[in-house]
Design a protein around this nucleic acid. Sequence first.
DNA 1: CAGTGGTCTAGACCACTGC
DNA 2: CAGTGGTCTAGACCACTGT
Lengths: 261, 261
Amino acid sequence: MAQLSDHLGPLDPTGDRAVYRQIADRLREAISRGRFTEGAKLPSEAELVEHFGVSRMTVRNSIALLQSEGLVSAEHGKGVFVRPRPPVRRLASDRFARRHREQGKSAFIVEADAAGSAPTVDQLEVREERPSAEVSARLGAPHKVLVRKRRYLLDGRPIEYAASYLPLDIARDTPIVQPNPGPGGIYARLEELGHTLDHFDEELRARMPTPQEARHLHLASGVPVIHLVRTAFDTHGRAVEVCDTVMAADAYLLTYRLPAT
Amino acid sequence: MAQLSDHLGPLDPTGDRAVYRQIADRLREAISRGRFTEGAKLPSEAELVEHFGVSRMTVRNSIALLQSEGLVSAEHGKGVFVRPRPPVRRLASDRFARRHREQGKSAFIVEADAAGSAPTVDQLEVREERPSAEVSARLGAPHKVLVRKRRYLLDGRPIEYAASYLPLDIARDTPIVQPNPGPGGIYARLEELGHTLDHFDEELRARMPTPQEARHLHLASGVPVIHLVRTAFDTHGRAVEVCDTVMAADAYLLTYRLPAT
DNA sequence: CAGTGGTCTAGACCACTGC
DNA sequence: CAGTGGTCTAGACCACTGT
């Protein structure tokens, strides 16, 4: 067994930098130098206490710091591990192109195929409800909306939680109210119903998850979410759908192509 | 002075939910119910210790949890405050449209004007260097690149740190090597030099900041960054610039328009 | 100066993991 | 079972803020 001191240099007792920050610095260094690779286990708290000659709370503080940076994650009873950078799911700006729908594939399936992963949809729920103020404003204040909620998983890991809202006068008595709306998804159905799609507007923020979101997406601490609200417009300029999605940020790489004109 | 118990209900001693999580729950509730509004000061640690009858570390644990959620931020010697939701800077997908450049405005100025805020550019540095593997791949493996680094501030607050990379054979002996490249920014200069711009590809991720990024952007804990890499292509399909930017996520709302075709 | 959060100690007991 | 991280206590001293 290699000595800890091979990986972790000494602290600077004179400096005014807090001891737990210095310990975090040493661990961060060791990780970035490859002393601990992705998925590797850090020294246990007891070993770090021994090595640095500090109390356990000080060591725990330093590990909490690294967790909040998303660098490591602790597993109860097992240890603290360097977070692997998970394969990212690439979300391209042509993901709603008609050619994909015409092949009978939903956007999620298209993307998952591209990533070579096993897609699953989960916790599907379809209901009617009164729209929130925000959804109402985007959809032109319908009395009621159809809501389609679902969770997306890739290789068993939940990575996205989404809710679609459609004006009820559009969705009523169509396959859109079915749990499975058929090939090409609801966008294909909308076009069959005469709502030819023209463009989508996306609004995107990043923030830390709420505790509820962290649960639903099984997020480790130090993993933000991307919150994206997409509005679909038909060729008459009418907003026909709003989709509110929350994505595990460490699972996504989004790409957009912007015209220069 | 109102009683703390008016704002914060009692703990559940029977439940197996950790006490510090329950305290965080109570505080989170109180905030979301408007008992503590944006910018308001939470009860001091001493008051919470008194109110809940727990030790100080337990209270501090609960506050650390709320900080990691981005809900509150602590200020040494002053107290713990509910994080105000700062006015977001809206970044629209037409921000590089030629019509903006032709008005002699750089993209950042265009956006800041739209937000009604005072824009500043900071820490400008222009150098030549050998490109990293990633930049090199995107720019078609030039021997050397011109690097333009700068920090953007809005109303004095740093919100973005950016580095542009251009092949040296394009930038050499042009106004692009000047700290201030002139009206319309470097994109206007590129077009004058015959590199008519066709489109931009943007790659976007969200993650927690490195300690260095947190310093440069003065980020409170619980604030992620948006990491965006944009490549500019001219009408010959040549990549003429790569711009690597790190943005304070709480200061930005990005919008994109996607065609449905 | 008093009040605030920041750091640190030296213990204790618990819950989870893997052998 | 031993080893791990999770929770909690009861102190201590420090650094920063405002009056």
